[in-house]
C-alpha cells in the first residue's frame, strides 16, 4: 500500500514538473495527463472509486482532449521556440504558486483528521448517489439543467442558418 502510494506520488510529482519544464506543448499536455491519471490512481488507492473514475472520465477523457485541440488549432506547436525557459512575468507566477501552496498547507494543518491514522473509505458509489438524489438534489438539478441547456445551445448553434441568407 505504502509502496503503491510512493510510486503514484512520484509519478504525480514527476508528471507535474515535466509538464512545466518540457519545451514542446504537446509533450507538456501528455505529462499533465500522467499527473491526472496518477491522481485518479491515488483516489482509487484511497478507496474513492467514484471520484477516481470521474477523474479519469473528465480529466483524461475530456479536459486533455480539449487542451490538445486548443493547442493544435491555435498555434504552431511543432517547434519549440528557442529562448529562456522562464517568462518575464515569473514574479507573478512565483506569487501565485506561493499563495496556492500556502492555502494548501494551511488547510492541511487545519484539517480535523488526526494524522497518522488511516481512515477507512466511507462513501460508496451508492452512498454518493443517495446523497446526490436527496440532500444535494437541487444543486445537481441546477448543474444538470445548465449542462443540458449548454448542449442544446451547441446543437442550435450548429443548425443550418437559413435566415441569414
Amino acid at each position: 500500500m505504502q509502496a503503491a502510494f510512493f510510486i503514484i506520488a512520484a509519478l504525480i510529482v514527476i508528471g507535474g514538473l515535466a509538464a512545466m519544464l518540457v519545451r514542446k506543448l504537446v509533450h507538456a499536455v501528455l505529462w499533465l495527463m500522467v499527473t491526472l491519471a496518477s491522481l485518479a490512481a491515488l483516489f482509487l488507492l484511497l478507496g474513492a472509486q467514484f471520484v477516481g473514475f470521474a477523474q479519469i472520465l473528465v480529466y483524461v477523457g475530456a479536459v486533455a482532449i480539449l487542451i490538445v485541440f486548443a493547442i493544435l488549432l491555435t498555434r504552431n506547436s511543432e517547434w519549440a521556440k528557442a529562448g529562456r525557459l522562464a517568462s518575464p512575468s515569473w514574479l507573478v507566477g512565483v506569487g501565485i504558486a506561493g499563495l496556492a501552496t500556502g492555502c494548501l498547507i494551511a488547510s492541511i494543518l487545519a484539517s480535523s483528521i488526526p494524522p497518522g491514522v488511516p481512515v477507512p473509505p466511507a462513501a460508496s458509489v451508492a452512498d454518493i448517489g443517495q446523497k446526490l438524489m436527496t440532500e444535494y438534489v437541487l444543486p445537481l438539478e441546477a448543474v444538470g439543467l445548465l449542462l443540458t441547456a449548454a448542449m442544446i445551445g451547441a446543437v442550435i448553434i450548429a443548425m443550418p442558418e437559413d435566415k441569414r441568407g
Binding site: 472509486q49 470521474a54 483524461v60 477523457g61 511543432e78
Partner: peptide, 28 residues
C-alpha cells in the same frame, strides 16, 4: 465486480481518445 462498473467502462474508454491523438500527432 465494481459498484461503478458502467462508469469505469466509460472512464477507461475515454483514454483511447488520447491514444488516437498520440498516434496521429507523433507521426508528424
Amino acid at each position: 465486480n465494481l459498484d461503478a462498473g458502467v462508469l469505469f467502462f466509460f472512464a477507461v474508454g475515454a483514454a483511447s481518445e488520447l491514444a488516437v491523438f498520440m498516434a496521429g500527432w507523433s507521426g508528424h
